[in-house]
Design a protein around this nucleic acid. Structure first.
Lengths: 230, 230
DNA sequence: CGGGATATTGATGCCGTTCAAAAACAGTGG
DNA sequence: CCACTGTTTTTGAACGGCATCAATATCCCG
């Protein structure tokens, strides 16, 4: 349809090799990009100059800081990446012309907000073991969405797009702890390692349990939030 | 102007006493609400039935899960609250009519996403002491925005809208730890307590330092994110 | 003034960090 | 193909911060 034609007319396709930046914190914003294949890591540079992984974007997902003049974080290719970028100005003009598109993008952003809130919640509360399991689970699922594997299968195999150090950073742990917990998951049979980066999950259900189970600090710990019926 | 008239024509003003719910997780969405005065706490109910504080909304900020059919979290009045709610259907119709409004709301949501990401980053990395300091600092600043105090003053006073237990929950700590850290901040002169809920910050700058300082795990610990120039 | 919720403070233990060293891996050049 | 070097990962031992359990103190409101 018309919108898609207009969209593709301003799109610029780029192939970006692994470990190269797509854009950097503070760059003039490119507005928006669609990831066709590969995995992108989002990196935030704090005021002290440290770099921290704050997110992953899998194909066929989207990427970008709509409306902002400059990017608030960096994006780098975790694997070789194939993306379409849309120049900010032209893209914003399109959005004004097609409210449907803007609305769609809006809903997408709201969803992203939900996911981020969920992640925050989990970082604040789960043990290191559960966190590592959770991240592996999420990556497993998103890899499946990206194609390749049948979704209904109860097993999965994927390549980790991050180093142990980056995993640790993403999870708010140290790389040693991540390594230990991965080993622990392996020895409990919840995962297998073909190589350090190549993970096999024989039973996704079991991993999902490990991701949130463990009494640790359950219902007993939930803050009693005083509030009456509305 | 026209838009504002239309807006206020569908608005419903409500006064909600402290500790009453405004809406609950799963309720049919009210779409959007503007907080005129008071503080609202956002509460997420996890699958296991625990309630966790995930955010605060100060006047004159906004609140809502635009476009969603049902709310993904609950909102409760932390203090007496005066809000205007906008019924979802009517509000969404207005958004379609006035793209400017939708865009404005969009930008607002994007900003919220940024704030949430920032918060996540901080929860993953800061010590309990820094976290408590950070939260007090944020509350101090937002209270000032809410009116009352002059912004340029380097001191602040405010009432905590949350119990220690809720503070702890928000920060991913226990209420005992929060209590200890508050005491510690007090004995270091960074804050004073008129009562347990009434906080005075004699020097906001100093508190800000406490909120992010402390060698703990600084630059040395930042994951080395391998990435070449774009 | 009394009683229930909220907050402070103390003692102990565990999980994750820290420091350190060895092992696995990847790339390079002979 | 293999020795050589730098990087990533694993594993070990000791320390420390935060959680946990428990007791006391303070606040709030009828």
């Amino acid at each position: 349809m018309e919108q898609l034609e207009r969209l593709s007319s301003i799109a610029r396709r780029r192939i970006i090799p692994a470990n190269h930046y797509i854009f950097r914190d503070g760059d003039e914003a490119i507005s928006f990009a669609a990831v066709n294949s590969g995995v992108v890591k989002l990196i935030k540079t704090t005021s002290e100059g440290e770099r921290h992984v704050i997110g992953l974007v899998y194909a066929p997902e989207f990427l970008g800081h709509t409306f902002a003049e400059t990017h608030k974080f960096s994006a780098a290719a975790a694997t070789d990446v194939d993306i379409c970028t849309f120049p900010r100005q032209a893209f914003n003009r399109l959005l004004l012309e097609y409210p449907d598109m803007q609305r769609w993008l809006f809903e997408f952003t709201v969803q992203e907000l939900d996911v981020t809130r969920e992640w925050t919640l989990m970082l604040g509360r789960k043990s290191s073991y559960e966190r590592v399991a959770s991240l592996l689970l999420i990556i497993a699922r998103r890899t499946r969405n990206a194609g390749a594997q049948p979704v209904h299968e109860n097993c999965a195999e994927f390549e980790l797009p991050l180093t142990r150090s980056e995993l640790a950073d993403y999870l708010g742990l140290t790389l040693e702890t991540v390594s230990r917990k991965v080993s622990q998951l392996k020895q409990q049979g919840l995962i297998e390692l073909r190589s350090t980066r190549d993970v096999v999950v024989p039973n996704v259900e079991l991993l999902a349990e490990a991701a949130s189970m463990y009494e640790h600090r359950e219902s007993a710990k939930a803050a009693k939030v005083a509030a009456f019926p509305a």
